[in-house]
C-alpha cells in the first residue's frame, strides 16, 4: 500500500470516522439548528461517555478475534444488584463493590469456559448473558427497581455535576480511556492482545501464556460493562434496569466497529471506540431531536454497523495483499 503524503492523508480510510462525525454534525445542524447548542453538545458527550465505557472491554475482546455478546446483560445485572443492595439499606460503597464483583464474576465464568474448557466464545457469552439477564430479572420480579436513596449521596452529586461546563462523567470516561490507551499502546499486554488476533498459534509458540491474556480480556470486558451499568443508575435511570440488555446490544457493536476504522485500520481499538461512542451519541441525539421513529434509528445504527464492518474487512484484506486471497475466499 502506497502511503499518501501531505494534505492528502486526511482522505485515507483511517480518517473516515472523522468525516462521518463531521457530516453527521453538519446534517443535524441543518435539519435542527438547536442541535449544536452548547447544552445539547454536552448532553451528547454525557451519553457518549457511558456508552463508550460499556464497550471498552469489548473492543479488546473483538481485537483478539473472540466474541462477547454478554456485555449489555452484564451491565443490566450489575445495575440491578447495585439497586437491590442500595434499596435494602446497604451503603453506596458496599453496593457498588458487590455489584462490580457480580459483573466480574460473569467475566470470570466466561473466561473459565472459553480458556480452560475451550468453549466457543459466542455460545458461551449467549449462555452467560442469559444467566446475567435471569439474575437481574429474578432480583425484583423482572421490574425496574427505583432507588431514590442514592440521590442524597455525595457520589450522585459528583457524577451528575459539571466541571467548567463539561459533565464530570465525560471526564471520568476520558481518564479511563487514557489509561487503557497507554496499556494498549505502551505495554506488552496490549501488544499481546493484537498478536492474539493475528495468529493464536504463533503467539503460543513464542512462549506467551495466551490463556492469561484472554482471561484478562474477558474480565476487562465484564468489568467495564458492570461499571457502566452502575454509572447509568446514577446518571440516566435512577433505577436498576433488568431489561437494559436489548437496548444496548446493537449500539455496542456499532460503536466498536465504527471505531475499527480509526488508527489501526480494520482492528478495533480504544481510540476508535471512544470516537465511535461519540458518533453514535450524535446520531441518537440528532435523530431523537428530529422525532425519528424506532425503525429509523434502528436501521440507521444497523447501516452504520455495516459501514464499519465493510471498511474493517476491506482494511484487513488490503493489509493481507492479493496473494492471500484465493478464488474461494
Amino acid at each position: 500500500m502506497k502511503k499518501k503524503k501531505g494534505i492528502l492523508t486526511i482522505f485515507q480510510p483511517e480518517y473516515a470516522l472523522f468525516w462521518l462525525i463531521l457530516l453527521a454534525i453538519i446534517f443535524f445542524w441543518i435539519m435542527q439548528p438547536a442541535f449544536v447548542s452548547f447544552g445539547n453538545l454536552m448532553n451528547v458527550l454525557k451519553n457518549a461517555s457511558y456508552m463508550a465505557l460499556m464497550v471498552l472491554g469489548l473492543t479488546w475482546v473483538i481485537a483478539t478475534n473472540e466474541m462477547d455478546c454478554s456485555f449489555p446483560d452484564v451491565a443490566a445485572c450489575a445495575s440491578m444488584v447495585f439497586a437491590w443492595l442500595a434499596f435494602h439499606g446497604y451503603s453506596v460503597l458496599v453496593s457498588f463493590i458487590i455489584a462490580m464483583l457480580s459483573g466480574i464474576l460473569c467475566g470470570v465464568l466466561t473466561s473459565i469456559l472459553v480458556v480452560r474448557f475451550k468453549y466457543h466464545s459466542l455460545i458461551t457469552t449467549i449462555a452467560v448473558s442469559t444467566i446475567a439477564k435471569s439474575v437481574a430479572a429474578a432480583l425484583y420480579g423482572g421490574m425496574p427497581l427505583s432507588v431514590p436513596v442514592i440521590k442524597s449521596t455525595g457520589f450522585y452529586k459528583f457524577v451528575n455535576s459539571y466541571l467548567a461546563g463539561i459533565p464530570v462523567i465525560f471526564i471520568i470516561a476520558v481518564a479511563i480511556y487514557a489509561v487503557l490507551f497507554i496499556i494498549q499502546e505502551k505495554t506488552r499486554y496490549g501488544q499481546y492482545v493484537y498478536a492474539l488476533g493475528e495468529n493464536r498459534v504463533a503467539v503460543q509458540e513464542a512462549g506467551i501464556k495466551t490463556g492469561k491474556v484472554l482471561t484478562g480480556v474477558f474480565i476487562t470486558s465484564a468489568f467495564f460493562a458492570a461499571l457502566s451499568g452502575i454509572l447509568m443508575v446514577f446518571v440516566v435511570y435512577g433505577s436498576g434496569q433488568p431489561k437494559m440488555g436489548s437496548a444496548f446490544f446493537l449500539d455496542g457493536f456499532t460503536v466498536v466497529f465504527l471505531g475499527a476504522m480509526v488508527m489501526k485500520l480494520g482492528k478495533t481499538n480504544v481510540v476508535g471506540t471512544f470516537l465511535g461512542g461519540i458518533m453514535l451519541a450524535i446520531v441518537v441525539n440528532g435523530l431523537t431531536q428530529l422525532g425519528a421513529s424506532f425503525a429509523t434509528s434502528q436501521i440507521t445504527k444497523g447501516v452504520l454497523l455495516v459501514i464499519g464492518i465493510v471498511i474493517a474487512a476491506l482494511g484487513q484484506r488490503k493489509n493481507r495483499g492479493k496473494a492471500g486471497l484465493l478464488k474461494y475466499e
Binding site: S293, A295, Q298, I299, L305, A313
Partner: peptide
C-alpha cells in the same frame, strides 16, 4: 460471497430487519 465476518454481519443485518419490522404498524 463477500466474506464478511459471520457473527457481526448477521447481527447488523438482523438489527436492520428488526428495525424495519416496526415500519408496518409502528410496533
Amino acid at each position: 460471497k463477500f466474506k464478511l465476518p459471520d457473527i457481526i454481519s448477521t447481527i447488523a443485518i438482523g438489527s436492520i430487519a428488526f428495525g424495519a419490522a416496526y415500519v408496518f404498524s409502528d410496533g
